Amino acid sequence: MDRPPALLLLLALGLCCPGIHGQSLEMKVRSPKDITQLRVGQRLELECQTDRNSGAFWIHQDKSGTLHFIVFISSVSQLTFSRDQRTSPRFEASKHNTVYLLVVKSFTPQDEGNYFCMMNFNQMLFFSPGQPAFLPVTTTVPAATTPGPTTPGPTTQCGITEKDSCQKTSDPGLCLLLLQLLAITIVLCRRKAHHNPL
């Protein structure tokens, strides 16, 4: 009998690592004070501050809502970037005690979006709130013209006018993030079970 992929993933996760739960975490992401004034080419540093020493993931949600795994920083400071690379042309990462640092080397429009930190501790997943990082919106003042018919205001990426808030709409990307992180946890649990057989 066919089952939805999300259900199969949750069932597999329950068998692999019972007791994993998504919660809002006791970690916090710290950004520079000038993050609202980002410029193209600027170096951006984000810190994930925790009270644990069990490794952390950094994930980027772009403006379209697509999620991108960036890097896993282990408890012994080993780095695994996407596609199992040890280095990345766009990012740097490091660990200092229980602070996990992510650096965007040269900020570009494709780096805009929300950044999340995630940790797996005692078979439980902990997620940080998203840290938004966007370039300033540039507005141009139109030349004086003869008043014409009223038109709707410019739309944002959410498809609503700038007077409204994008936060009013639900974010399906968050659900996708959870499913991707659950898949990563399954892989980690299998590796742990392989190295530590009962």
Results as ranks from 00 to 15, higher is better:
D111E: 13
W58L: 02
P197G: 02
M118T: 09
L177E: 01
V76N: 15
H60E: 05
Q37Y: 03
D84K: 15
D171N: 15
Q42W: 00
D51M: 04
I160A: 01
K163H: 10
D2S: 11
T87V: 12
T185F: 00
T146K: 14
Q49Y: 09
L125V: 12
K63C: 13
T108Y: 01
C48E: 03
M119P: 00
Q167I: 11
S24L: 12
Q23W: 11
S165F: 02
L79M: 09
L179E: 08
L7Q: 11
R190S: 04
S24G: 06
G153V: 04
C189W: 00
L178E: 06
P89I: 06
T66W: 05
L179R: 09
H60T: 01
V40W: 00
T150C: 05
R83C: 07
R52C: 02
P149Q: 10
M1C: 09
P147S: 06
C117A: 15
K163C: 14
P154R: 07
E26Y: 11
V71S: 03
E92V: 03
I184N: 03
L188E: 08
N122W: 04
A143F: 10
Q42N: 04
L8F: 09
C189T: 12
N196P: 00
R90E: 09
F107V: 01
Q61F: 02
L182N: 01
C189L: 04
V104W: 02
S74T: 15
T169S: 14
F69G: 00
I59A: 01
T146P: 00
R30L: 13
P136H: 07
P152C: 10
F121V: 15
G153T: 05
A12G: 10
F107K: 00
K168H: 11
C189E: 07
C166G: 10
P152Y: 10
A193W: 07
V99G: 04
I35H: 01
L10P: 00
L46G: 04
G173I: 04
L135A: 07
P4M: 06
G41C: 03
A193L: 06
T140I: 10
L13D: 01
L176P: 00
F127L: 15
L10A: 13
S64W: 03
I70F: 04
C166D: 07
P5D: 12
T151N: 07
D111A: 04
F91W: 13
P149A: 11
G55R: 08
R39G: 00
P132F: 10
C16T: 03
N114P: 01
A143R: 14
E162P: 00
M118D: 05
D51H: 11
M118R: 01
